[in-house]
């Protein structure tokens, strides 16, 4: 296919760079979707599954434990909410997923501190989001509160909401 896009990823199983091909046409036909591309390769044979968004960015990579060879390329689409927003999760950064709608807990959290409430709202409205992006989105509060809001502060709030079951760590 002439409109194929070649994307380079790094396979942790064989510690080698590999190329995967994604059809631009197929990507464009699924706006907002994430393509799941599986490629079997290496010795012993194993499969890598790459989640690619419509901008050809690799959102996440998974590996199979066992492979039965079909010698065929497989492409399927999954909801973007099921996939982390970036590759941060792979790089060891915590990611959080909402377990509820913010409107459902708004009343309960009405007297929570503004930082906590804002973080919860961001996670609830994002579906899935990594820690650094939560911090980026609460940065506007730094000037308002006159202090630096570090990753550790944001993580402490997220972890508390994880314990309380309002969000989950993925």
């Amino acid at each position: 296919m002439a409109d194929n896009k070649c994307i380079k990823i790094h396979c942790k199983k064989c510690d080698a760079p590999i190329d995967i091909e994604v059809s631009q046409e197929e990507l464009k036909s699924q706006p907002g979707g994430i393509f799941r591309v599986m490629l079997a390769h290496g010795e012993p044979l194993h499969a890598v599954i790459a989640y690619v968004d419509t901008n050809c960015r690799v959102r996440s990579i998974e590996y199979s434990d066992a492979v039965q060879v079909s010698q065929e390329r497989s492409v399927t689409a999954v909801s973007s909410e099921q996939v982390p927003i970036s590759m941060s999760e792979q790089m060891g950064e915590p990611c959080y997923q909402s377990m509820c709608n913010f409107d459902e807990v708004k009343e309960r959290e009405k007297s929570s501190f503004i930082l906590d409430k804002t973080i919860l709202k961001i996670v609830c409205e994002s579906g899935t989001i990594c820690l650094s992006q939560v911090r980026q989105q609460v940065a506007f509060l730094e000037k308002a509160l006159g202090e630096k809001i570090g990753l550790d502060k944001v993580q402490a709030v997220c972890d508390r909401y994880v314990q309380e079951g309002l969000i989950r760590s993925i």
Binding site: S111, F113, K117, T118, L141, K143, A144
Partner: peptide
């Protein structure tokens, strides 16, 4: 003054915040 942008945005802030 320092928090004016946040305070004037009802989507970002409620009375307790």
């Amino acid at each position: 003054v320092k928090a004016r942008e946040v305070l004037l945005n009802p989507d970002m802030v409620d009375p307790q915040a």
